[in-house]
């Protein structure tokens, strides 16, 4: 269970959140929504332990993140950052195997590591590309391989920063189903920064809305994802469309 207590976050010249209290339970899938620059990524980094600064604390299973040894924490919490670019000349399989670092002892690669990497590649539909070098992949394929590395890391909490970037519509749905399944069937916890309100409404059960004035609303997706809230969030007039699959909003 992830708990933030009286969390304060600021960047130079701006307070991103004040006294945030939030509890995220196993099996839950949270969307983090907000305008550009509202602090979604900073908040995600604070909740995942990438950023230890800021008063107030974040704890995982009752223990402050700062008290975990690094590799222990990496077995609990995995992060898919926004693409930082990479200097990697090896193959797709070698790349995904790096996700096993928190489990590695000594120099070798265990059979368990190989199984985890192969299974992760299958789950994102990239098994056939295992022997290709990373440089030969398209942007969307590379994003799926990045997701595969995170699956190989097999954390309890998945922190995803715009996991759908570069993915086509079909692969967006597939990626979200994958994480939804990890939450529902294996009790993993998922936090994701999203811009797609349609997907947030369909695949997430909870949401965090980061308003521009530093106010943060947290609650169930059903409760928070309303036309009124989203118009205020994105400062843009919206029109709601209802379909069988759920509700979505388009600019008015």
């Amino acid at each position: 269970m992830l708990r933030a207590q009286r969390l304060n976050l600021s960047v130079p010249g701006k307070t991103l959140c004040r006294d945030l209290d939030v509890v995220v339970k196993p099996g839950e899938c949270w969307a983090i929504l907000g305008r550009n620059g509202s602090g979604k990524t900073t908040l995600l980094h604070a909740l995942s332990g990438l950023r230890m600064a800021g008063s107030g604390g974040v704890s995982w299973d009752g223990k402050p993140l700062a008290d975990y040894p690094r590799r222990d924490l990496a077995r609990q919490i995995g992060v898919l950052p926004q693409d930082e670019g990479h200097e990697f000349w090896g193959t797709v399989l070698e790349y995904v195997l790096l996700g096993r670092y928190p489990y590695s002892r000594g120099f070798g690669i265990s059979g368990e590591d190989e199984d985890a990497a192969a299974s992760a590649l299958r789950q994102v539909g990239m098994a056939e590309m295992a022997g290709r070098t990373l440089a030969t992949l398209s942007g969307g394929e590379r994003q799926r391989v990045r997701i595969a590395m995170l699956l190989a890391q097999a954390p309890q909490l998945y922190c995803l920063d715009e996991p759908l970037q570069h993915l086509d519509l079909g692969h967006q749905a597939e990626a979200l189903r994958l994480f939804r399944r990890l939450a529902a069937e294996e009790g993993r916890t998922v936090l994701m920064v999203l811009h797609e309100t349609l997907w947030a409404g369909r695949f997430c059960d909870h949401a965090l809305l980061l308003y521009d004035n530093g106010e943060i609303a947290s609650g169930t997706a059903a409760e928070l994802l309303t036309g009124e809230n989203l118009e205020r969030l994105y400062q843009c007039g919206l029109r709601e469309l209802s379909t069988e699959g759920g509700r979505c909003w388009v600019p008015a």
Binding site: H45, S48, G49, L50, R70, R71, D72, L73, A74, R75, I77, G78, V79, P81, E84, G85, H86, E87, F88, G90, L98, G99, Y101, P102, S104, F107, Q153
Partner: peptide, 20 residues
């Protein structure tokens, strides 16, 4: 060696995988 490989993925990713 393994840490050096991971460093190539970027500082955030390296940090999240447990590298100091």
């Amino acid at each position: 060696a393994k840490s050096l490989d991971i460093l190539g993925l970027g500082e955030l990713k390296a940090h999240s995988l447990g590298i100091a």
